[in-house]
Design a protein around this nucleic acid. Sequence first.
DNA 1: GCAAAGTGTAATTTATACACTAGATAGTTT
DNA 2: AAACTATCTAGTGTATAAATTACACTTTGC
Lengths: 147, 147
Amino acid sequence: MIVTDEDFKVIDSAIEDVRKSGTKIRKTFAAYNESEGYDIAWEVSAAVEAFSSFSSRWSIEILSTLYIAGDRRFNEMRKLLTGISSRTLSDKLTHCAELGLVNRIVDEGPPIRVRYQLTEHGRNAGRLLSPLVAYMKIQKGRVVKEK
Amino acid sequence: MIVTDEDFKVIDSAIEDVRKSGTKIRKTFAAYNESEGYDIAWEVSAAVEAFSSFSSRWSIEILSTLYIAGDRRFNEMRKLLTGISSRTLSDKLTHCAELGLVNRIVDEGPPIRVRYQLTEHGRNAGRLLSPLVAYMKIQKGRVVKEK
DNA sequence: GCAAAGTGTAATTTATACACTAGATAGTTT
DNA sequence: AAACTATCTAGTGTATAAATTACACTTTGC
């Protein structure tokens, strides 16, 4: 057995997430259409920026990792995103924070620790990305198991 | 009215696509698990490569555009992917073809025309990406309408 | 002395700008 | 009818700019 039941669970839950998110996104949009005053300026600009930033290296892995694994610290991210340099991770996390996709949370210590968390908008993106990532993770998993 | 019913239809059909693809992917994996001899070497390596290539600029837009719009010619792609240079588009399409995500089909003329088409593997990726793209398209659409 | 969360700097890789090509089609002028 | 001009298609070549990596280094706390 190469693809496990565990793998199927991952993809199933990802698909279920997408189904749920459809309803939620429709509700959000409906609310937006009805209330003219609802301030979504930042949200909109973040989304547009995000669409471009998705196209650059690592952004997808960062968002989907935070979505799947939950809040993570800097060095934890480095381990999960195999191959990223600390310089690039630092830059990308700053960029995602500027776009409003990710919150940088300092847990006052001691010891002081920094935690990265998806915002509402980041979770939307992560949720929609997750089926792709689940599929790719399984493909990756296959190769590792075969070696 | 800023978000139209048309927008909702796009996202609904994207979500429906994902739901369907779940069943299909499970079947593919089940078949793979049962038949030890099934040669998926190229498919697997393409997937792993693809996972990296998704992380690079434009790949997502290329795959999702071909998935949503169907087969397209070189200059059609250029119009759909606003902002891409012809040099980069050429390189990216070649790369995607090497990875087995895209087929380059020459329609013997006259006039001779070149068409790009997703492979089975490219369609899997495109299908899983489509909800994200639908969401982002709507976000983009909002901004355009507000201007 | 090690972990955490980075920064600085140089080298490499990737993408863009922009000019250009070659073959075909289409219209228009001599 | 032949030549002239213009445009479309699918790119390539080259220089520049931007993004990423490698690798050394820092600071604070245990």
